[in-house]
Design a protein around this nucleic acid. Structure first.
Lengths: 134, 134
DNA sequence: CTAGTTGCAAAGAGTTTGCATGGCG
DNA sequence: CGCCATGCAAACTCTTTGCAACTAG
């Protein structure tokens, strides 16, 4: 898709690499990079391309209308199932083998083939559960 | 929250009851009810209220920017895990017991407490898998 | 050089809100 | 009757797009 590696694209990719798995809005990314780095529209256009390449996923956050983008780093995320904590907002990874076992179980029982890259489990992480108990 | 049961509210609730679990946009609902039934803004206002009461969930569909609403009928959905097919768009329910087993497994392995009412598994349903094979 | 990219500003799409009118209880 | 809800249209927010200037290869 992308033929040229422009200055803007480099900065964006660099930023995203350092923030893999985080839910970021286009505006947040543009702000983080600074107005001199690249325009908002360039952010949108690059995000769209990354999405087309499957390196990025669109997601919604809470009950907001804004679109959030999540960079899926090939190495750290391959095959992992994503767990998102509603309290602290952090994303966790479930080991690929364990995730496959679970999803295979769903396939056997329901005849439904779950797609790991599109699915996110929402709940409360271990850390936040402890806080709650106190 | 809602103090009066207006004609519009009745029509809306009646429609939603017959379409529990479906992903519907505000516009689709307004169109289905007809322009005489209620205005688009009334649809939005009522949906917001239902959301506040926990009877409705916001969701995003595919990679669209539109917000979709899903009516969670207390009886048919309690405890069930939702499975959403990316091909046909239909939503399926996974039996409560089976779902609990799976999610308990996640809790044990990862220390992560999954919330069934917020989680949706995306993938391809049995019917669409067969079509694909042909 | 040439085609892909960028910035800016204008256009779109969807959702929310202000205000006067109307209707439930 | 009083107050909540509705309808309409304007206001908003976020995202996309047109176009001329720019730049990577």
């Amino acid at each position: 898709m992308s033929k040229y590696m422009t200055r803007q694209r480099k900065v964006l990719l660099s930023y995203l690499s350092g923030h893999a798995d985080e839910l970021l809005s286009a505006q947040e990314i543009a702000d983080a990079l600074g107005p001199e780095a690249m325009s908002l529209s360039a952010v949108y256009r690059n995000l769209s391309e990354l999405e087309g390449e499957g390196k990025l996923r669109r997601a919604s956050k809470g009950n907001q209308r804004e679109i959030y983008y999540q960079y899926i780093d090939a190495e750290s995320c391959k095959g992992a199932l994503h767990l998102s904590c509603k309290k602290c907002g952090k994303t966790f990874h479930m080991e690929p083998e364990a995730a496959c076992q679970l999803l295979d179980a769903v396939a056997r029982m329901e005849g439904f083939a779950v797609d790991k890259s599109d699915t996110v489990l929402y709940g409360v992480c271990g850390g936040c559960q402890e806080e709650k108990e106190r």
